[in-house]
Design a protein around this nucleic acid. Structure first.
Lengths: 146, 146
DNA sequence: TCCATTCACTTCAAGACTCGAAGCATCGAA
DNA sequence: TTCGATGCTTCGAGTCTTGAAGTGAATGGA
């Protein structure tokens, strides 16, 4: 198999991800957020039913206590509210506040502006999207999201 | 422009990177390493001249004091040695030990085995590689690496 | 119904990561 | 030779991550 290409591709995704993080750092800091808290904000889609802590932990590949910490950060900053799931009172659903939606939108736009991936043409983005979709569909853990 | 595709692509690279990290976590822990220390190990290519701390910090997008910490971890684990650059005695060159080369090779192989990107065919990998190369060439900070 | 078990989450302690400010030695230019 | 810049380290503070232990709520079987 093409170990050389695979190495290059893994390194490239790595570099692009790290670089993107670096480029949006300023914008995140402006809201007293970090990559970890932004990532959490990212995976709360306001157009979907609010996720539970458990679902969030699966999406972020972290454990429950870690998510408690991250959630506290977002709650302290007024971006998210914990609500009790009426269908299961053990579960907490994370709901974006109005401010949370605003900040999430703004930072999402910033990320799309700044990412090096933005240099690609529509056609190239479609190719890339097709390839990456195939990767995601092949992995059960990645497929089962949002 | 295709904001939809761009969003999907950014989310996908994010997911794939996070998932890969999760998948190699076990292997890293076996050497008492973490994503941060592994990333540092990754960017020390034994076939290239040893990088200085400064160069490492640029590659990892972190500041000098952070790199001192990471380097200490690698030195404590016997994977790396700090040597004084004879051409500039302020500068420390990071040299892999024999063990460091061994561990780096092993973990690189593990990463290539486990990454979800490995499901792609040679042809698809080449397409992906071409697209990502274009992204990297477009960004000065990414272009200027190894 | 009762009780044991499981589940979702929180708390705590420990360690890892990251940054900025301040410090040290070295370098290079004037 | 001197002075500012450079490369790195130290320190303090805050953030992130984990595992073990704890709480309250659901669930299933007697």
């Amino acid at each position: 198999m093409g170990a050389r290409e695979l190495t290059a591709v893994v390194a490239a995704t790595n570099d692009i991800w790290t670089r993107t993080n670096d480029l949006i750092g300023q914008a995140l800091a402006g809201h007293r957020l970090t990559p970890a808290t932004f990532q959490a904000l990212w995976v709360i889609d306001p157009d979907e039913p609010p996720p539970s802590m458990k679902v969030m932990a699966e999406r972020l590949y972290c454990n429950a206590s870690n998510l408690t910490f991250i959630t506290n950060q977002l709650v302290e900053r007024g971006l998210v509210e914990r609500t009790v799931d009426p269908a299961n009172r053990r579960s907490r659903l994370l709901v974006l506040t109005a401010e949370g939606r605003r900040v999430r939108d703004e930072l999402l736009r910033t990320a799309l502006e700044k990412t090096p991936l933005a240099v690609l043409s529509d056609d190239e983005l479609r190719q890339l999207s097709t390839l990456l979709s195939r990767v995601i569909q092949s992995d059960p853990a990645l497929r089962h999201r949002s």
